[in-house]
Simulated assay, not measured.
Amino acid sequence: MKEQPNLRDATYQEEAAIDSNSTSIAGLVRQLTREVPSLFTKELALAKAEITEALNTTKAATIGMASGGIVLLGGFIMLLLSAVLGLSNVVAPWLAALIVGGVVCVVGMIMVSAGKKKLDPAAFKPERTINSMQKDKEAVKGKVA
């Protein structure tokens, strides 16, 4: 009967071979060529996870803001109507509507500008992945040098 190879023994022999070759440059290069593809695969998975997390957070925030905005719009229209009606007791109704509309437009432009600043593309930058890859790069340089 043929004996099955023991994976633990094979792994031990491979580690022993790596240890014996680790002092030579060729051994280090062989080890590096085995580890680099796995490292990049893991880094890409981390980047994908970070980007997915950022997109999901942005999606949830956008839905919440849109829903709240719709409800707020209904109340805001009523407040504007009452401001126009109140101001029309002092000035002509057309002028009251013009004044209220102008003030609302200015406030709206300020709000849009503030919201634009929060959607900065830098928020989508995968910081952890970049830092991790920088550390990996320095570790590889340290091993090769």
Results as ranks from 00 to 15, higher is better:
Glu50Lys: 00
Leu55Tyr: 04
Ile110His: 02
Val36Glu: 02
Ile130Tyr: 06
Ala145Gln: 15
Pro5Tyr: 07
Gly86Ala: 11
Thr62Ile: 11
Ala47His: 04
Ala17Ser: 07
Ala17Val: 11
Gln134Ser: 13
Gly64Arg: 03
Phe124Cys: 02
Gly75Asn: 05
Lys2Ile: 07
Leu32Ser: 03
Lys137Ile: 10
Leu46Gly: 07
Val29Trp: 04
Leu28Pro: 04
Asn131Gln: 13
Asn56Val: 09
Val107Cys: 11
Gly69Cys: 00
Thr58Asp: 10
Ile130Cys: 01
Ser88Met: 02
Leu28Trp: 09
Gly27Ala: 00
Glu35Cys: 10
Ala92Lys: 12
Asp19Lys: 00
Lys137Glu: 10
Glu3Gly: 07
Glu50Pro: 05
Ala66Cys: 11
Arg34Ser: 05
Gly27Arg: 00
Ile99Pro: 01
Thr23Arg: 06
Arg30Asn: 13
Pro126Ser: 01
Val36Pro: 02
Ile70Gln: 01
Lys42Met: 07
Asn56Arg: 08
Gly27Phe: 11
Ala83Leu: 10
Thr11Gln: 15
Thr52Ser: 12
Ser38Gly: 09
Ala26Met: 12
Ala61Trp: 03
Arg34Leu: 10
Lys143Ile: 05
Ser20Asn: 11
Lys137Leu: 06
Asn56Ala: 14
Met133Thr: 13
Arg8Gln: 09
Gly69Trp: 07
Val103Gly: 05
Val71Ser: 12
Lys42Asn: 08
Val106Gly: 10
Val106Pro: 03
Ile110Arg: 06
Val100Ser: 02
